[in-house]
Design a protein around this nucleic acid. Structure first.
Lengths: 340, 340
DNA sequence: CTGTTAGCGCGTTCAA
DNA sequence: TTGAACGCGCTAACAG
């Protein structure tokens, strides 16, 4: 008998019914103390463990959260997954993991897998070029809630957790203005991303407050690849009103931008200054880090997203239809990168 | 009817039996073409998806791999998990994730959870101070295979994937010797770790080849915390035969060691030189990186571990008892960190 | 207090 | 070519 023991076996050995065993194991109130003891003792002796797959099946609940991220090896997301796992664990949930590699097709396929695994809910940071959201909509029919974070789709009724990039951007631009920069460029990310739009907003607002005119030429986009960033840099540096400072979409992009600038014989922090958004916790160890970085608190975002999802899952039992959508906004914060 | 459709429903609507539907859906050979078509059509219309939890339960197989790592946010492990996820996905497996935070108790608890989830197999890099291996042994009874990687327990019959740190250490010490260093210190990790022992071996062998006597004072251990590393540095720097070069357990520890040295007014790369082991892919962006680093290929280790596990799972169906244990050794490799 | 029964969704005999 | 029946392990409603 190499198979794990079942309540059925216990019942047989004790000559009692299966359901009695089940109750005894669950400390059901209406059960004889003596039988309860006998059952629990034998269970321990046999090293009995309930078969979760049976329970999952029967309860229609798996206590598993699906998590889909673009790249696990990126510092931002690995911090996030760390926060997610910790929080899930705290609430007795497990984490089923998938990475989309920023590929819409793969993302779709993973959502499918997760659905088939009957995860109780999903936490997703979408692939950067996902344009079709059908695979998310579909989950509503199955009553599988989603909490998006950081990279959020442009959909009306969703739950999400995000950092307010507008405020961070305002802080960043203000910082540069106070340091007497007047021509400030921006290398933004894909337009589709809400976070990109927020950066634009922040940029414009900060400039307006200083009564500086908005020069659209100073605003370029990168697809986040090295090549895209180089093209963006090229376009900024070829302007007649050349920027003396550039706000860059994130630290990875900034590293590429810095490299390009150095390649073009520009002296970092003298000829040109960079400010960035921190997807990279180690940027303060870097040789030529951006002067400052807008911190986005990935661990906390992961935490919050998970807490939100867990709360949602708790509620879904009570109310048949939850109509309120969670929008959790964390404040981003400009941090100076003093190179010690 | 908000519940997902089942074969039972399909059967009823088509006035045929459940088993016919099941067969039709599986392209069973002995099934009428017409019925098959009708079933598959209706299944598509209803958006039918098999309930995996039912199948898992029934098949006693979940197509899920459990992965337990110390810290998801550490670059080394986040690369590894990336390789694991990619490979698992390729083989149609899902990944259930847990992080031990280098805490034995938590590791134990996660193993328990994974077992209850009936994962088909486990991939583990153990917590740095795990000394009791009962929770691993226990899994053998349940026929859940484990493949360890990088951080391997000191147990006789196990599957594992690791980098050969001895060869890397020899390369590192040789490198220093060739650069005319003669007093070479080493800050090692916890003695329990196999990887620590290998470093010692490599160090001794390399020194021997140069006919240099082995000074045990030059070999100290850190528990990998900042404080532990500082104590280790202090002890090395207080020696009368002060080292001109130090081989450090990994890049994180090296960062702390460098910082300590700078604090003591030592000029990095002049008064003292560091060589390290690369747990940190970004070390080449660092202001004062170790001169060189032994690369351990975390992504590849993750890949290999997963492939090994998947192969194991395939075999377990054929042979009742697999008696051979996989020991996959990847070569580590010294990489120069030229700071551009 | 305890036993009997049904059912969760699916695959798989065994019969027809 | 198809259907009926069973079992996977467990919970829960219903009877005593």
């Amino acid at each position: 008998m190499s198979n794990p023991p079942t309540i059925k076996e216990i019942a047989k050995k004790l000559n009692i019914s299966i359901s009695t065993v089940s109750r005894a194991l669950h400390d059901h109130p209406s059960i004889g103390l003596r039988t309860k003891m006998r059952v629990q003792q034998l269970a321990k002796d046999l090293n009995y463990e309930p078969n979760q797959t049976a329970i999952f099946f029967q309860q229609r609940k798996t206590f598993t959260l699906g998590v889909i991220l673009p790249e696990l090896s990126e510092a931002f997301f690995s911090s996030a997954i760390s926060g997610i796992e910790d929080t899930a664990n705290k609430h007795k949930y497990s984490v089923l993991l998938g990475q989309s590699h920023d590929n819409e097709e793969r993302e779709k396929q993973i959502v499918e897998t997760m659905k088939n695994h009957r995860v109780d809910g999903l936490i997703i940071s979408i692939a950067k070029n996902t344009v079709n959201y059908d695979h998310f909509e579909m989950l509503k029919k199955y009553n599988i809630p989603i909490v998006f974070f950081d990279r959020i789709p442009n959909l009306p009724n969703i739950h999400y957790v995000a950092c307010d990039m507008e405020s961070g951007t305002i802080q960043a631009v203000n910082f540069l203005l106070k340091n007497n920069h007047r021509i400030i460029g921006m290398i933004n990310g894909p337009e589709k991303l809400f976070a990109s739009q927020q950066r634009v907003e922040g940029y414009i607002k900060a400039m307006k407050k200083y009564r500086l005119k908005f020069d659209p030429n100073l605003m370029v986009a990168s697809d986040l690849t090295r090549e895209g960033t180089e093209t963006a840099m090229q376009s900024l540096l070829s302007l007649r009103r050349k920027p003396t400072a550039i706000v860059v979409f994130n630290d990875y992009v900034a590293l590429d931008a810095v490299q390009y600038a150095r390649h073009k014989k520009l002296r970092i922090n003298k000829d040109i200054v960079f400010v960035s958004y921190s997807n990279l916790p180690l940027s303060h160890y870097t040789a030529f880090p951006p002067l400052a970085s807008v911190e986005q608190f990935p661990y906390q975002q992961g935490q919050k997203a998970t807490e939100t999802l867990v709360e949602l899952l708790g509620k879904s039992n009570e109310q048949p239809e939850a109509t309120t959508y969670y929008k959790v906004i964390l404040e981003s914060q400009l941090m100076l990168n003093q190179n010690k």
